[in-house]
Computed example of a mutant assay.
Amino acid sequence: MNDVIETILAHRSVRKFEDKKLTREQIETIVRCAQAASTSSFVQAYSIIGVTDQAKKEKLAAVAGNQQYVADNGHLFVLCADLHRHDVIREMENADMEESIKSTEKFMVALIDAALAAQNAAIAAESMGLGICYIGGLRNNLDEVSEILQTPKRVIPLFGLVVGYPAKINNQKPRLPISNIYHENVYQQDQTQFQNQLQEYNETIQQYYRERTGGKRSDTWTGQIATSFEKKNRMYMNDFIKKHDLNK
């Protein structure tokens, strides 16, 4: 096993950081690693906004559900799907690109490009001895996030990535077994087997929470997911995307 694989397999989210900022060199290295990720047809349909203004970080922390580690960290990156750049290209090249820019396919390309870049950035940061945590809570109110970050039309802030020197590291959450994730040749649809695998995973997760909380918590993974999906969070998203003239 090499160092890269060890870094990937050791991942865990960090939510408490030392009061120490990343250097400019560290930030630029992480961004360069993000840019080294694969990008569909060389489209590069994403942007990264580094937030150093503490007042802005506090506002974003409030949007994300008052998660203080969004404000208190070594550096906050916000990953954005970005097709504004391609609007600029359309004007520069006087090209008939409007329908393509608005298409679901190009919107998916932007989402995928941003996610690939983000994971490269995360692995780079962790390889430097830093901790990271993704912040999906920014999507609680994208109108406010867009105003704070002054993003133009066709730029969609997707999630944050907080990076810093870990002050506390939790035990690693067990992932689903490979047999529940990896399918060969066709999608496995034996529902009895599927449910048995999920039940076994529930028992693993229950044990994880019992050990982490001293027996105060023992919920299952399927129970967590069912409760989460019942809440119907961020149902405004389709309207927000359409307002940016995307995913048409």
Rank of each mutant, 00 (worst) to 15 (best):
N170Q: 11
Q197F: 04
P174E: 08
N202E: 04
P177Y: 03
I169F: 04
Q189A: 15
Q207P: 01
N180E: 12
K173L: 13
Y208L: 07
F194I: 13
F194T: 06
D190S: 04
N180T: 08
I181G: 10
E203I: 10
Y182E: 05
K153A: 14
R217D: 00
V155N: 12
E211T: 06
N196L: 07
Q172H: 01
R210H: 00
Y182T: 10
T204K: 08
R154D: 08
Y201L: 01
T213N: 02
N180D: 12
V162N: 04
Q207K: 11
V163Y: 02
E211P: 01
V163W: 00
L158T: 03
Q188V: 03
P177W: 01
E200H: 12
Q193T: 12
Y187A: 05
V186N: 02
Q197S: 05
N171S: 15
Q188H: 05
I156P: 13
L161W: 10
E203R: 12
I181W: 09
L198G: 03
L176V: 11
T192C: 05
S218A: 07
I181C: 10
P157C: 00
K216H: 08
K173W: 13
I205Q: 07
K153M: 12
I156G: 01
L161Y: 06
G214N: 14
Q197E: 06
E203F: 11
Q195D: 10
T192E: 13
P177Q: 00
L161D: 14
G215M: 14
V163D: 02
Y208S: 08
F159Q: 04
L198D: 02
H183Q: 11
Q188F: 02
Y182F: 14
V186A: 02
Q193M: 11
P174W: 11
Y165V: 15
Q189N: 15
T204H: 04
N170R: 12
G215C: 09
Y201F: 10
S218L: 01
N196F: 07
Q172I: 07
G160R: 04
A167L: 04
Q195N: 10
K168N: 07
F194M: 11
P174R: 07
I205P: 13
I156Y: 03
V155G: 09
Y208V: 04
R217Q: 09
E211A: 01
Y165C: 09
D190M: 07
R212N: 08
I169P: 08
N202P: 11
E184F: 02
Q191K: 10
L161N: 12
Y182H: 09
H183E: 12
N202W: 07
P177F: 02
Y209N: 06
L158C: 00
G164H: 03
Q207L: 05
Q188D: 09
A167G: 15
N185Y: 06
I178T: 15
L158E: 01
I169T: 12
R212Q: 11
Q193I: 11
I156F: 12
N202V: 07
P177A: 02
Q206Y: 00
E203Q: 14
L198P: 00
